[in-house]
Design a binder for these strands. Structure first.
Length: 756
RNA sequence: GCCGAAGUGGCGGAAUGGCAGACGCGACGGUCUCAAAAACCGUUGAGGGCAACCUCGUGUGGGUUCGACUCCCACCUUCGGCACCA
């Protein structure tokens, strides 16, 4: 555990504790997501077995670290995703999706991590590198299991019912990447084949002067001419060897002619068909119509290979366009469509293609189906059995879980470790009883975490994954505290799984999280905390020295929770000093002062309730802590002017308000004040709105926007009386230099501005 | 290149149209002490003035407004994300 974890957990805990005091039933669960490559690699590094390392780590994490933080986790409902009673239901979800046709097997180009020796989902490739080990990813064609998350693309774009940060919505939307356009079929000249392309610019079809297929396009071999066969084969082989990253970033456009021609359905002219790696097999149709006059990439390619460039769009102002001209504009050289605007022409041309049966409107998504298989050991076996006669069959639900067998050599080799265990592989078909083989891949770690919020509620149930009544009562999650790194992975997957389970009748709602709040990152000298950088900071020493309460508050005092911050321990002493002063107020003698400041103290007390509550509610505990510090300072300085009753009222409020932030201190203080256990079961103090404002307030008097004086007026003073008071001020009169004000703006309760 | 967030003292930050710099760190001065630490008290945006006070000041340039850190436009910088997505 490092200080980043403390920041995350305590930020969420302070919020949860406030809500509990505010009278909500708060369920704050915790669990361990300990399957997956990360845990397995860690075990490999230690030369131990994950089944041994994981429980030991969980124990240390829970007993020696988490429990010291003072978070109100419900440990009785802890989950551990590596336990059979948990992953049984992960497998059950797989079976539900399989039965619904949402899990399927396909031969497809996939991301392969050569170091981890497994495939990865698209979301788990960061900048062309493995999300876990940073190794450059290569493409491989393999038969793998996928979830049809793309079927949910449209619904995943709908955030209308949830309160998510704008950044999260934007990122998920961009990741899903909806784009409207058309599919257009091009007949191949002198061959029975047809090539379908996807374009967002059907209006430019008259300018399509060649076609480009991705090297992996299934028709490449079919259409290539005998003369070009060798060159094409060489190019395809070369493209396969390249890392995806190199293909994407390579500035130079490369490609090769297939020797074949297609007919442009708009012009009826033959156009050459090329293969180039700037066209991606996994997007759209894996093939494009190239319009070099109106697309940067096609222009670069056409220039490099001396292909024809035909402008068919004009700038709206009629100027001669500098090519490539990628904006919209009126069509030229486009037959009956000439003169139409891009938007108008797109509609008309798609209509015309539909009539001829050679095209259709089409929406495409950048989102890929979720690749679920992993050729690794440490995960839930995918619950599928292959039978010669009956094909792929799900393991019957009453036979779940498919236990992960304890094996010694689990080192990844590229083929699933489970495949080396005949006792595991060989089984019988659940349908016909004949000999069958088990699936030997395990499922993606992100599937484990895509549903745990459902399991927390019903950890004691062994006959069902969750109790419907409890789901109805507690879910969806009211406040989900997480990291922005999960935006296009965990959050997206969880939303998908819940929507799928909803459609299958297993949960009554279709968004897992109502309110999402993202925490910022804790850095050291501006760098992310990581073992490889050697800058991981453990909270243990700080907690031992200052106590958990001081450390919690210190971390949150860094600034807004969503901003994170750079960890320097230079400010811990300030929080420690504050806690010491508060403690003195609680334990010191009660003053019997003259009560002259009782009214002010009461007003401050009410204001404090509002400030602390609003600060915590907005995940800005630092302003709540600052307000508490101010109040402690004020009480210390005005003891002699407060009655014993008012003093006690103020101190008790202070203790109640600090309870979410410093739970241990507050409990002890509460007891010292003569109350019984527990301060955390007390209601959050309510502020009396009528006491928030003072009878007399000080407001600034500005002249031309510059503050020249401050005057004391009644809070409810009328405009004319405020004006009169402002003009009566010595300083104002001096600044006016005898001139008549041209205008006087009175903002009730805030300011007066005199325009000279 | 595109999308997003942010730029305020020496530092973390506060103020979301009305007194810029709350609160804290650091620094400086003081009390206590043989001394130091701790604790406590005070000062601390820049410049000017003996002083009361004055001038400037929230990345840069423009704009809206009686009034702008806050709203609008353009730009610069930093961070995060996406990136040949047709």
């Amino acid at each position: 555990m490092h200080v980043g974890h403390v920041y995350t957990y305590c930020g969420a805990d302070v919020f949860g504790r406030l809500r509990r005091m505010q009278g909500y039933d708060v369920f704050q669960p915790i669990g361990f997501d300990a399957f997956g490559i990360h845990s397995e690699n860690f075990a490999l590094k230690l030369g131990k077995h994950p089944a041994e390392v994981v429980p030991a780590n969980i124990r240390r994490f829970r007993e020696e670290q988490m429990k010291l933080l003072g978070c109100q986790f419900d440990w009785s409902r802890e989950v551990d995703t590596t336990q059979p009673e948990y992953y049984r239901w992960t497998q059950w979800i797989f079976v539900q999706l399989f039965k619904a046709g949402l899990a399927y097997q396909a031969e497809a180009p996939v991301n392969w991590c050569p170091k981890d020796q497994t495939v990865l989902a698209n979301e788990q490739v960061i900048d062309g590198r493995c999300e876990r080990c940073d190794t450059p990813i290569v493409q491989r064609v393999m038969r793998q299991w996928f979830f049809r998350i793309t079927d949910y693309a449209e619904r995943l774009l709908d955030f209308s019912g949830v309160d998510f940060p704008e950044s999260s919505i934007k990122r998920q939307t961009a990741w899903i990447g909806r784009s409207e356009g058309a599919e257009i079929d091009f007949a191949v000249a002198d061959q029975p084949a047809e090539i379908t392309v996807f374009t967002t610019r059907p209006d430019t079809i008259f300018g399509a002067t060649f076609l480009v297929l991705a090297p992996e396009h299934p028709l490449v071999a079919t259409i290539t001419s005998a003369e070009q066969r060798e060159a094409v084969a060489a190019y395809v082989a070369q493209a396969q060897r390249k890392l995806e990253r190199e293909r994407l970033i390579g500035a130079e456009k490369t490609g090769v002619f297939t020797g074949a021609y297609a007919i442009n359905p708009a012009t009826n002219q033959p156009i050459s068909i090329w293969i180039a790696d700037y066209v991606l097999a996994r997007y759209g149709a894996g093939a494009i119509m190239a319009v070099p006059a109106h697309d940067d990439r096609d222009y670069a390619f056409a220039s490099a290979y001396h292909l024809p460039i035909v402008p068919v769009i004009q700038p709206a102002d009629g100027a001669i366009a500098e090519l490539p001209f990628v904006e919209d504009g009126p069509l030229i050289e486009s037959g009956e469509f000439s003169g139409m605007s891009s938007a108008e022409a797109s509609r008309a041309i798609v209509g015309w293609l539909v009539e001829r049966g050679s095209g259709r409107a089409r929406v495409t998504y950048r989102l890929r189906d979720w690749l679920i298989s992993r050729q690794r050991y440490w995960g839930p076996p995918i619950p599928i059995v292959y039978c010669e006669a009956c094909g792929a069959q799900p393991v019957p639900e009453d036979q779940l879980p498919v236990l992960l067998p304890p094996i010694e050599n689990f080192r990844p080799t590229g083929t699933a470790p489970l495949a080396s265990i005949p006792e595991f592989v060989n089984t019988t078909c659940p349908l016909c009883g004949g000999a069958a083989r088990r699936e030997t891949d395990v499922s993606d770690n992100f599937l484990d975490s895509a549903w745990y919020f459902l399991r927390y509620l019903s950890t004691e149930y062994h006959d069902r994954p969750w109790d419907t009544e409890r789901v109805r009562r507690w879910l969806p999650v009211d406040h989900y505290a997480g990291g922005p790194e999960h935006t296009t992975m965990h959050h997206l997957y969880a939303r998908f799984i819940v929507k799928a389970l909803h459609d299958l009748g297993h949960v009554p709602y279709d968004e897992p999280f109502k309110r999402l709040r993202l925490h910022g990152m804790i850095t050291k000298y501006g760098a992310k905390l990581s073992k490889s950088r050697g800058n991981v900071i453990s909270p243990d020493g700080y907690i031992a020295q200052y106590g958990a309460d001081v450390f919690r508050m210190y971390m949150l005092f860094l600034g807004p929770w969503e901003d994170g911050g750079d960890f320097t321990d230079s400010g811990v002493s300030g929080v420690a000093r504050f806690v010491g002063r508060l403690w003195e107020l609680v334990t010191g003698a009660t003053p019997r002062g003259d009560a002259t400041l009782d009214d002010e103290a009461e007003r401050r007390r009410n204001q404090l309730i509002v400030r602390v509550g609003e600060g915590i509610d907005g995940m800005r505990a630092h302003v709540a802590i600052a307000a508490l510090m101010e109040e402690v300072g004020w009480l210390r300085g005005n003891m002699e002017q407060l009655s014993a009753n008012q003093w006690r009222r103020s101190i008790e409020t202070l203790v109640l308000l600090i309870a979410p932030l410093a739970p241990h201190l507050a409990e002890e203080a509460w007891e010292r004040l003569g109350h019984s256990f527990s301060v955390h079961q007390q209601p959050w103090p309510s502020a009396d709105a009528t006491l928030l404002a003072a009878a007399q307030i000080e407001i600034p008097v500005q002249i031309n926007g510059k503050v020249r004086d401050r005057i004391l007026v009644a809070a409810d003073a009328s405009e004319p009386s405020v004006t009169a008071a402002a003009l009566a001020s010595e300083r104002v009169r001096a600044a006016l230099e005898g001139r008549e004000p041209r205008r006087i703006v009175v903002v009730p309760g805030r300011a007066v501005n005199i325009v000279r």
